Amino acid sequence: METSNRSEKRTKIIYWIFTLWMALGMVSTAIVQLMKNKDELANFTNLGYPAYLMTIIGVWKLLGVIAILIPKRLLLKEWAYAGFFFVMSGAVISHLIVGDPAGRTFPAVLLLVLVIISWYFRPANRKITIIEK
């Protein structure tokens, strides 16, 4: 029993470290996107995306962070994780397609990895459980 508690505690610590790091990354990039930072705007246009997409993605990131951090609302959390996965994997693929160097691609890769680790280590009370009949 004690090993199980220790394992659960370890899992929760990993979850919160990576979730807070992911949330910080999502919020900071959302702010940069919503402020239409000139470097971020150049990055978006280099990837072939319109500037207005920065506003859409920035708002979604902020809402996603809220959904993941608030208690309960398990289905909303799953949608937020899915959205983060699609946005960040799309960013990685976009950087690779245009041939961006590793330094420009790394932030998207890092956020994608943080999303996956946060999702994987989320505690049982933050997971949807399916009861089969």
Rank of each mutant, 00 (worst) to 15 (best):
T29V: 12
G64N: 04
A30L: 04
M54R: 06
P123Q: 08
I130R: 03
I17C: 06
I117R: 01
G90I: 05
M1F: 11
M22H: 10
Q33V: 06
G25L: 07
L34W: 09
W16P: 00
G25N: 13
T29D: 11
R73E: 12
K36V: 02
T55G: 04
L24W: 03
E2W: 15
F86G: 07
T11Y: 14
I56S: 09
I14H: 06
L24Y: 15
Y49P: 03
F85C: 14
M88N: 13
M26W: 14
K72I: 07
I131A: 15
L63A: 14
I56A: 13
G48S: 06
I56H: 10
V65N: 12
R126Y: 15
I31N: 14
G99C: 13
V115L: 04
I70Q: 09
G25H: 13
V27Q: 07
A102W: 01
G58W: 02
T129V: 11
L111R: 04
T3C: 12
D39E: 15
F44V: 05
P50Y: 05
E8T: 03
M26H: 10
L53E: 14
K77Y: 04
A102F: 00
A82N: 13
L53R: 00
W21Y: 10
L76N: 01
T105S: 07
Y120E: 07
V113P: 02
W79L: 03
I66R: 09
G48L: 02
M35S: 10
N37Y: 09
I57E: 02
